[in-house]
């Protein structure tokens, strides 16, 4: 049997590119990735590579000697100041990360479970502090924590204290408080998302099998939100490790962080290679700490 009649227009012939992309699905993905990939290579891998290279150089007088070597690293290892500084930075970053995540978890929980339609409004309210500049917020904290600040004058007028709490401002405490506030929203969002994702029927099933609300939280809700908690840890820990503005503005001599020294080495001390070496050590520290968080999560989730 032969059919010769052809009705309607012939299908349009796709272009060569269209046909190629239709056939090779992998390339469609690569094409979508390309802009970000190029940007990442140029803007992230490039500087990192340069930092790594520079950390092997040395400074003599006003000259930079580009012969690769580990001089900066051995100098750091022999100077007791560096471990102290790195340890203190870790301590500040960890303290404020842990405190923030613990404080923020109930907020995220409230957002994910309690509020119905007002969810969007609450999220907006929580990001409100971020509508002003970072510097303004730090200044505001100086006003709050200072000797004549809101807290001290409030406590003094109530007669709780007779003279200002001097450790409130220009101290490690102040740095921790301000950093915690600055990055809180970055911790809320991942926890909120992981809680929001939990299928409500898991919670009903747990209640059905006899769990009280508290038991159910520890057996179902919390374990299922752990990926979000880990993400919140990393989201907070990484930027606070690299902080240098907050310590300058609200910190005292005892609260200088690694970031401040890196900045000093690139600035007044004019020793870029040493600064680069310090930055590399920081990157490795942060990387290891993040891996530890992820590993811990794996262990718990098993």
């Amino acid at each position: 049997m032969t059919v010769t009649s052809v009705s309607g227009p012939a299908p349009a012939r796709p272009s060569a590119i269209t046909r190629f992309l239709h056939r090779h699905e992998g390339w469609r993905g690569h094409l979508l990735l390309a802009p970000a990939l190029i940007l990442m290579t140029v803007a992230i891998i490039g500087p990192m590579w340069m930092t790594l290279m520079m950390s092997t150089w040395t400074v003599r007088g006003f000259d930079i000697i580009v012969t690769p070597g580990l001089a900066n690293y051995t100098a750091m290892a022999n100077n007791p100041m560096f471990p102290v500084l790195i340890w203190r930075t870790l301590e500040i970053a960890l303290t404020c990360t842990i405190v923030t995540v613990v404080l923020v978890y109930p907020v995220a929980y409230f957002l994910a479970f309690q509020t119905g339609r007002s969810k969007a409004i609450w999220l907006l309210v929580l990001t409100l502090p971020f509508w002003t500049s970072y510097l303004l917020r730090v200044f505001a904290w100086r006003v709050v924590l200072g000797n004549e600040g809101a807290i001290n004058s409030g406590l003094m007028s109530l007669g709780v204290i007779s003279e200002p709490l001097s450790w409130l401002l220009y101290s490690q405490t102040a740095v921790t408080i301000v950093l915690a506030h600055s990055w809180a929203a970055f911790a809320i969002v991942p926890i909120f998302v992981s809680l929001e994702k939990i299928n409500r029927s898991y919670l009903e099933a747990a209640a059905d099998l006899g769990d009280t609300p508290a038991r159910r939280f520890w057996r179902i809700t919390f374990p299922l939100s752990l990926p979000g908690v880990v993400a919140a840890f990393i989201m907070m820990f990484v930027p606070t490790m690299g902080e240098y503005i907050t310590p300058i503005m609200v910190g005292g001599p005892d609260s200088m962080m690694v970031g401040n020294l890196v900045q000093a080495m690139y600035g007044p001390m004019a020793n870029w290679p040493a600064g680069a070496a310090l930055a590399v050590v920081m990157m490795i520290t942060i990387g290891l700490a993040s891996l530890a968080f992820v590993g811990l999560n794996r262990l718990v989730q098993r």
């Binding site: 299928n199 898991y202 099933a205 059905d208 179902i220």
Partner: peptide, 16 residues
């Protein structure tokens, strides 16, 4: 629910 002598098989199973 946790005080009722009743158990349920959920439509989506709700296996943890």
């Amino acid at each position: 629910p946790h005080l009722r002598p009743i158990n349920m098989v959920f439509q989506n199973y709700a296996i943890f």
